[in-house]
Design a protein around this nucleic acid. Structure first.
Length: 367
DNA sequence: AACACGGGGGG
DNA sequence: CCCCCAGTGTT
């Protein structure tokens, strides 16, 4: 199994940027970006990220807004914040170097058992097993494991198998060592042993694959999906004043933490336009009146199927809490379109910015 | 063990 | 539309 897989990999491996230069720093960044994200999606982000932050210290010193801006569109934004925290930890505790031991790597934020094993094996050719979406599927099919791979017993068997398959013989040749094997197993899952319609006819190990022999390749791994898709309707509000728009910084601990967003809410805070007006007035002080609907944005993300109504709005400050020219409530600010361009936003937030940046803009200035 | 994570690609 | 993706951290 191992030899056939390695031979196949040496002939079919994709030319990925973290394979050309496999320093721990680069492999780390690539692994974090690849979490729950397809390789093809990662590529442009990886190159840009490495150009902006070529070293651990550059990343540790990064401006948080710029860092989040670099991550915009990749999703799972906590990954970017964990990267930053981990880089700072490396500067403080490891003299700015990437830690060498598995346990020290595992102790970094955002790094679990898979990622620690991937870094140690791919970067340093050390014998640590990995288990992720690809290898879970490849190994399950190979041994004919019919229990869903998410179950505890399946996880235990798969980790054990991943470890047992690892080349132990100390090899200077990365391609025949843990670096080669772990990447080969993942690559097989990505290119051949795909979730649906696996290309068993092109698979180097089909003849010794339990699932293939029994014709179970479409039934293994078993159904994992427990996700309940949820339709959500939310309202966002564009409030302008002298070519500036009202936005806020999302606080720690909630979704979009550290990013910038237009006033936005959905159930239970705001069920409709009237609910939005009162919710936003409660946030800002004064009165808020929503105007015409500029656009409705449909956006599917993770398990949510969102419909976002974007309205114009007016904010009349007439309470004692906030004077007309006084300080903004905490975390809120006025920003121009140019300023918004450099701020990190969700994909839907960025779509709203693009609405402002177009011909319709003249439409606003008359309102 | 179950859930959140708020992006995108592919069938 | 549904499922999956080089998973991790939290409850």
């Amino acid at each position: 199994m191992r030899k056939r897989l390695l031979t196949w990999f040496s002939d079919n491996a994709r030319d990925l940027p973290w394979r050309r230069d496999h320093s721990p720093y680069r492999v780390w960044i690539s692994e974090i970006m690849c979490q729950q994200t397809q390789v093809a999606t990662v590529l442009p982000y990886f190159e840009r990220f490495l150009s902006t932050y070529p070293t651990i210290r550059n990343l540790a010193d990064a401006d948080e807004n710029q860092l989040m801006r670099m991550w915009e569109g990749l999703g799972y934004y906590r990954r970017a914040r964990s990267l930053h925290a981990a880089a700072k930890k490396m500067v403080e505790e490891h003299d700015g170097e990437f830690p060498e031991s598995f346990d020290d790597v595992l102790a970094l934020p955002g790094i679990g058992r898979y990622t620690a094993g991937a870094i140690q094996s791919i970067s340093r050719n050390q014998a640590f097993p990995i288990l992720e979406g690809n290898t879970q599927r490849v190994f399950s099919r190979w041994i004919g494991l019919t229990v869903p791979p998410t179950e505890k017993i399946a996880q235990a068997r798969l980790w054990e198998l991943s470890d047992k398959m690892l080349p132990r013989r100390k090899s200077d040749d990365r391609s025949n060592g843990p670096a080669g094997f772990n990447q080969a197993a993942m690559e097989l899952g990505a290119l051949i042993c795909s979730p649906r319609s696996p290309k068993c006819g092109e698979c180097p190990v089909a003849t010794i694959c339990h699932a293939n022999q029994q014709g179970l390749q479409d039934d293994i791994p078993g159904k994992i999906s427990k996700v309940q898709y949820e339709s959500r309707t939310e309202i966002a509000v564009v409030i302008s004043r002298d070519d500036r728009y009202l936005v806020r910084t999302i606080p720690e601990g909630v979704r979009f933490a550290g990013m910038i967003d237009f006033p936005r809410a959905g159930p239970p805070e705001a069920d409709d336009v009237v609910g939005m007006e009162s919710w936003l007035a409660g946030q800002l002080g004064g009165d808020v009146t929503l105007g015409m609907r500029l656009k409705t944005i449909k956006h599917a993300v993770t398990r949510y199927r969102m419909t976002l109504h974007v309205h114009l709005g007016e904010w009349n400050v007439n309470s004692d809490r906030v004077a007309e020219d006084g300080p903004m409530p905490d975390s809120w600010q006025w920003a121009t379109v140019d300023e918004l361009a450099d701020m990190p936003m969700s994909v839907t937030g960025r779509k709203i910015v693009r609405l402002l940046d177009r011909p319709q803009r003249s439409l606003f200035s008359e309102l």
